[in-house]
Design a protein around this nucleic acid. Structure first.
Length: 363
DNA sequence: GGGTCCCGTCCAACCACACGCCGCC
DNA sequence: CTGGCGGCGTGTGGTTGGACGGGAC
């Protein structure tokens, strides 16, 4: 799964014009495929210092500006707003400004699993959840980090362990202060999110849920004015931290029609709003020459739909941590679906089978 | 419009046990 | 400090009962 599987045309590599672009080089203002990126940016020392970012996974037309941990996706400003302005839960997704990489895109893809976008080689499932990889430790660390990003601090934690003056608690509070509590409940169930430990749909907003929140990181997100229910950020990067590779994040009226929830419940998008969104220009922080307008409203709608489906399949599948346990569970006897005690004879035969396994029988 | 019934959908709970983890020696 | 051992907790999947939503009456 990946860029190739998207039926709509992704932006082509500015260099070879043959393959869809997966990275964007700000210095060159060029969209490049993996191969060309490696070729070009390994050419000399100067080129190797070009900061690159992934191309947005949704529109595949613009440089990613944010990485959504919950969606495990890199999104451009417009798509980020499309998707995360939809509802309170989506708004709570922890998004971090995309950090540019200077290494080869292939290497960056390996080291920045969740930060990647339109996946190099096309298979971001592998990137996010490669289960048989050689790089087991890095993978586990990545998984842990991702899992951690999903944990919602309980109010107790927020009050006790987290500085109330910090942005973490305040931002969550901020994000919820205007929410419609009955909006987008299906995010938790229909969307296949990690299961809440409470009963049924209407109880999903709980303090101990697993819905991620905007968390305090090395960056400080200072909520600005809410634009149509969506906060505008002023991101203040702490001294010492690298400035993010960002594009403008202009306040703009935005419809909530293009959203995870609306898509998932089949609400017909407001095409006027779609056009409004898709026509939103994104300009570069430097240079000022405009990047081509991403995609039409319908294209965007289709892309977002595909993205949603992709995310659903990818992100919310049950994660098997121990394949051996899975294998064992599948072979265990059951009674009405419940694990049953293994009959002694069966256990004996299994033991015998184990004992004899690999032993050359003697006659 | 409100109440009741029925049907379809969703999901937490249940079970046994191998294995990972941790403390102890 | 290291390795072995033992105990405890965790994770695993198919089925089911209960709860809920929505439509019909």
């Amino acid at each position: 799964m990946g860029a190739e599987s998207w039926s709509l045309t992704a932006k082509l590599c500015d260099s070879c014009k043959a393959v869809s672009a997966t990275v964007f080089c700000g210095a060159d203002t060029a969209f490049l495929c993996l191969a060309c990126d490696s070729k070009i940016h390994a050419a000399n020392k100067l080129a190797s210092r070009h900061a690159r970012v992934w191309v947005c996974e949704v529109c595949e037309q613009a440089p990613a500006s944010f990485t959504c941990k919950a969606d495990a996706a890199a999104l451009c400003v417009t798509c980020d707003r499309d998707i995360h302005s939809a509802n309170p839960l989506a708004r709570r997704h922890e998004r971090l400004p995309v950090v540019p990489f200077y290494d080869s895109a292939a290497a960056a893809a390996k080291s920045h699993g969740a930060a990647g976008s339109a996946s190099p080689g096309g298979d971001d499932d592998t990137k996010y959840f490669s289960n048989e990889s050689d790089n087991q430790n890095a993978e586990e660390a990545e998984e842990e980090a991702e899992a951690a990003s999903w944990l919602l601090p309980t109010p107790n934690n927020a009050k006790g362990g987290v500085d109330l003056e910090g942005s973490e608690y305040k931002s969550a509070d901020y994000l919820f202060n205007d929410m419609d509590p009955y909006l987008d409940m299906e995010m938790m169930s229909g969307g296949g999110d990690q299961k809440p430990h409470h009963h049924h749909h209407h109880q999903h907003y709980n303090s101990d849920g697993v819905v991620p929140v905007q968390k305090k990181t090395e960056t400080r997100h200072v909520p600005g004015p809410v634009v149509d229910g969506f906060p505008t950020y002023e991101i203040d990067f702490a001294a010492g931290s690298k400035p993010p590779f960002m594009y403008n994040f202009a306040s703009q009226s935005i419809s909530q029609s293009v959203s995870s929830s609306s898509m998932e419940v089949g609400v017909v998008p407001d095409h006027n709003a779609m056009a409004d969104v898709s026509n939103a220009p994104f300009s570069r922080t430097s240079g000022g020459d405009a990047v081509p307008n991403p995609v039409s409203g319908l294209d965007r709608e289709a892309r977002v739909l595909r993205y949603r489906e992709k995310r659903k399949n990818r992100k919310f599948e049950k994660t098997i941590r121990y394949a051996s346990r899975k294998a064992y569970a599948e072979t265990r006897p059951r009674i009405k679906g419940r694990f049953a005690k293994r009959a002694e004879t069966e256990a004996d035969s299994l033991l015998a089978a184990d004992a004899s396994y690999g032993v050359v029988p003697s006659y």
